[in-house]
């Protein structure tokens, strides 16, 4: 049984459907990224989806929020979606990604505050 069947065939269905409703509201690029993130994260979910749900939720929240801000998908995820997903799930390279996210946070703040100051 695939992960997809496991989760769609279980009590997680409703929660999962809510995710898809939210994803459908995303702009095309962000929706495409969601599909990619799903397929990569599924690699981690060969036994149960439950423990991955908050991770999916966080990824979707990130996409929603950056879409609302008009940020491009590349700005958000970078080139390495596979690595990004591994990091989300705490897999290999998670620490490197955390460092990258940290740097990204400071860079974004500096850029946006700079723009604000004129």
């Amino acid at each position: 049984m695939s992960f997809w069947e496991t989760i769609t065939g279980s009590d997680l269905t409703r929660e999962w459907k809510a995710f898809e409703v939210r994803a459908a509201a995303l702009p095309p690029d962000h929706r495409a990224a969601w599909e990619q993130i799903k397929s990569h994260l599924f690699l981690y979910g060969d036994f149960t989806g439950r423990n991955l749900m908050p991770i999916f939720d966080g990824a979707l929240g990130l996409l929603e929020e950056t879409a609302a801000d008009g940020q491009s998908i590349h700005d958000v995820l970078g080139d390495d979606i596979e690595g990004f997903c591994a990091a989300l799930a705490g897999g290999e390279g998670a620490r490197t990604f955390r460092d990258r996210w940290r740097a990204q946070l400071n860079r974004n703040v500096a850029r946006k505050l700079g723009r604000l100051g004129g």
């Binding site: 966080g58 990130l62 505050l113 604000l116």
Partner: peptide, 19 residues
Amino acid sequence: PPDYQIVYKEIQRYYFKVG
């Protein structure tokens, strides 16, 4: 204020990734 909003949003975004 605008500067607070910017920093808040970026921190929230960071937390969405770190989880």
